[in-house]
Amino acid sequence: MSLSSPTAEAPSSASATDGSPAAAPAPGPPAGLTPMRLAWRRFRRDKAGVAAGSVVLLFFVAGLGAPLFAKLYGKDPYTTYGQNEPGLLNDYGYPIAPNGGISGEYWLGIEPGLGRDVLTQLLYGIRTSLLISLAVVAIVTVLGVVVGVTAGYLGGRTDYLAGRVIDVMLSFPSTLFFIAFTPVVTSLLTSPGEEMSPLLRGSILVMVLSAFGWAGVARLLRGQVLSLRSREFVEAARASGSPPHRIIFHELLPNLWTPILVTASLAVPAYVTTEAALSYLGVGMVEPTPDWGRMLLKGAEVYQTDITYMFVPGISMLIFVVAFNLLGDSIRDALDPKTDR
């Protein structure tokens, strides 16, 4: 999994945005359909996209509905079943039943050592990952759009300043920074006698990830705005005396939705893996908050004896990331028919 700031790799084709304002005629559209409806129609025809979208939707439902499911299923991700009930774990702390302890009762087996239920851990883990990455993507996108559009539209000294700040942010060794910085923040915010709440820890993660993530989005949008700025429709708006905010919101932004949506949809899986990587390295979420990165870490440790435990989070994450990336691609194809295959 790569730790590099995910938004740095913007979709190159996004620059091929349909340049004309909303009213411009797209190549042969049926009359009476808005571009969004058109995009939706194109998306529906893309089978891979629909499949990926359904998988992603399933992950969202599973993650957000995890507590409800856990209730129906009768297990929770915190109870150490294996330690409380004899017959589940052997002397070494490994599941006794084959395939990681998969049984009618524990559908995906039990965790070696503590003996917690793997399925609920996985579902609650999706929730942790998704909530964190969605929060990061929201913050990063808003910040990136604001800085990028401002820099690109105003140009001159503002653009120069913003550009240098973005350069610094992009060249910063962010992974090392996370590892070194997170424990410092943690100890600053909690006294030795108290425990840090998962919410606070999650917020720190979100903040640290956002602090670096916005730069990529900003750079991409700045480039977009620079090319749009000199287009006729913007010139015309300016000549007719539109105020800057009107130009930004009514002329520029509608043409920026495509790159924004595409980067955001590709950033979500990237941040899921980044968050998992941070937890894997010991600076992300800590016990007892369920987390995919830590599950993978444990999996790498026990794989010699209990490889199932490594497969479960590994395959889940693979499916999730592939599905989300395919969805991102499909969204781009749908919004930007020029790249249609």
């Binding site: 999994m1 004899p86 017959g87 589940l88 774990l89 052997n90 002397d91 070494y92 490994y94 599941p95 006794i96 039943a97 084959p98 395939n99 990681g100 302890g101 894997y280 993978l296 870490l297 790498a300 440790e301 794989y303 004896t305 209990d306 490889i307 199932t308 435990y309 490594m310 497969f311 590994g314 395959i315 994450m317 693979l318």
Partner: peptide, 25 residues
């Protein structure tokens, strides 16, 4: 623990479990 491949796809099938129940009892 050194993290190997996230997915040991080429590896063997699932693990065989930790043996009989009396082992733990």
């Amino acid at each position: 623990a050194v993290m190997g491949a996230v997915l040991a796809i080429g590896a063997t099938a699932c693990s065989s479990g930790g043996g009989s129940t009396d082992n733990a009892a």
